[in-house]
Design a protein around this nucleic acid. Structure first.
Lengths: 348, 348
DNA sequence: TTGAAAGCGCTAACAG
DNA sequence: CTGTTAGCGCTTTCAA
């Protein structure tokens, strides 16, 4: 049961030195010269007593916790998990630690932010939908980095993938395959990312001399049954779409299954592109625009660290690259050779 | 820019009272009687100055951080993410906070544990593969709860799903469908969970009067290409299996794709069951044994809280229920109606 | 009903 | 080269 940890005073006593000397030795301070014998005695004493520095005390003293908070609404999202992995990695590499909150609902989220600030996190990485209260929250405390939304780029560093370019990649691909009637079918999520994908969609079409047909732009429903119905509704238009650009892999996958279950051939009858480059897309052989979420997470952490080092830097938006991954949902792959390697450490 | 937060002394000054009074008011201490007017003045001052209690200082003082550490090797795993969600929820409900580390490799993991202890986490929830050094680590510090492995149940609370029963559910189902030649095809992961699934497999077969054929028990390879080769090797046995029991959904999925890609009908030629009840299985219409990972996470957190309240409790293993979810990989579903609802908050 | 003072574990000036 | 001292922000006796 939590063997009472020794404190630095006890270590000092045992080594026959003062508390300060212990601190000097343990923190390897170059500006203090310590005799090798003292050093050894301190080190030995610390080991013998199983000494473990108390970072809370250290934090009180220096007003710095060495902790960064990450807030996400949905840990089970592959995207969020990948971002977080990248973030954790970079923070750990730099001696920082990650304090996480996963919650839904603005009341809880607000409380989580407050708690983090009470714990004196040095910054917050925000992986959730934007909300009106956030602007104020950012102003009041530590620096924030916002991932996957850049609507607050005037007061916080934002990391978004280049969604305009990403959408263009997909549309260019579809047009190159001969598609002219391309639907934009997106979940309802009011974020700059989704808006950018829509702009990219429109711009890409325009550059090919195709005008946006409003009847081909729709909101993706929340359940698969309605998705199937809507899909058939789409296809019974006078001039039905031959291709669908989705803003998420999961929507693309639901639509793909809806199509397959009801005898619509993919990519024979319709082509489908997803967005994000998640496992879903890989496993279901869906062409997608890869976002490199891990890289986004790494970038977010570095931006935060940079701002911690130099608070004067003017906030801005940082774009990460997107990449088209062509798979069987747009191009019929003659010999299906989906010999993807399994992710490392995968289980269950 | 981190507007220097006011401290309790400043609040006291502004309210014209002592620091102690501020503490009494803000912590709503019943044993101290405070006049309503003083109370109001303190509250007002705190609000005006934007006072935020410093939990680090509080932690130093009381030797308690109110933080629990969670260590996982693979955040992108649906299983880990679900467990963590459950854990975060319960901890938050009880005023605790979650400090997370995600790492790979024993050196890093050990360092992470050490760091958490230095931050004075009150307990650790372990979501990673067991390793020899863990036993010692547990002895030395705070209480641990281990999820999905019970090999250290003598010194730590363990939460595992009832894997013997879970395996039996799957095997009973396959036997009921007429299968007698059932393969056990498992990833190589030395945990009690996997061992239990194997015991359950053997016991269930035995109860149906079928003996285990060692040639039907194999290790799942690390890449899909080799999985495909191995699958065909299986099927070219003199008496090939007609059904495959996998210990994970992802393996089942890889095998399913390997089968489909090479003209083997599922469930026509072979039946397949996964394990875990993850999204993978749902989206690929795979029969699986659901583990309710979220519930496991909740259970882990409650066990830790219970032990924190009463350290004397003797450690043990806690089983969570499993459930069979029948889908199209074992039973041909006449009218495919996979109208699953999308998970809440899903995106990308 | 309120306040003064001690102290949690640690680090950083400043002496010596 | 090492020790003394002050103090981080907070809670909590103990007096008043």
């Amino acid at each position: 049961m939590a063997t009472k940890t020794a404190n630095s005073l006890e270590v000092a006593k045992r080594a026959g030195v003062s508390q300060a000397t212990v601190s000097y030795v343990l923190n390897k301070r170059g500006d203090q010269s310590i005799s090798e014998s003292t050093r050894q005695r301190v080190l030995d004493a610390a080991r013998d007593l199983n000494y473990r520095p108390n970072r809370l005390a250290n934090g009180v003293l220096r007003g710095k916790s060495n902790i960064v908070g990450v807030i996400t609404t949905y840990l089970n999202s592959d995207f969020h998990a990948s971002v977080m992995t990248g973030t954790c990695d970079v923070l750990a590499e730099n001696g920082y630690h990650t304090y996480i909150a996963s919650a839904t609902g603005n009341a809880t989220l607000q409380r989580d932010v407050e708690l983090m600030l009470e714990h004196r996190v040095e910054g917050i990485i925000w992986l959730a939908e934007s909300a009106p209260w956030i602007r104020e929250a950012i102003g009041a405390g530590v620096p924030w980095v916002i991932v996957d939304d850049n609507s607050l780029a005037d007061i916080a560093d934002c990391v978004v993938s280049n969604d305009v370019a990403g959408a263009r990649l997909a549309i260019d691909h579809l047009v190159a395959l001969g598609h002219r009637r391309i639907a934009f079918w997106s979940a309802e999520w009011d974020s700059s990312s989704y808006r950018d994908r829509r702009h990219g969609y429109a711009a890409a079409l325009a550059s090919h001399g195709i005008s946006v047909d409003p009847s081909l732009v729709r909101t993706f429903p929340l359940d698969a049954r309605r998705a199937a119905i809507e899909l058939h509704d789409f296809l019974s238009l006078p001039e039905p779409p031959t291709a669908f650009f989705f803003t998420s892999d999961i929507n693309a996958m639901v639509a793909l299954h809806a199509a397959q279950d009801t005898g619509i051939a993919v990519p024979g009858d319709i082509a489908i592109t997803g967005y994000s480059g998640q496992d879903y897309a890989d496993f279901n052989d869906i062409t997608t625009v890869s976002q490199n979420a891990r890289e986004m997470g790494r970038k977010a952490a570095s931006l935060l660290l940079r701002r911690l080092a130099d608070p004067a830097i003017i906030p801005g938006t940082y774009l990460t690259a997107t990449k088209l991954i062509v798979r069987g949902s747009t191009v019929h792959q003659p010999a299906k050779n989906r010999f993807y390697p399994l992710p490392n450490n995968v289980r269950h």
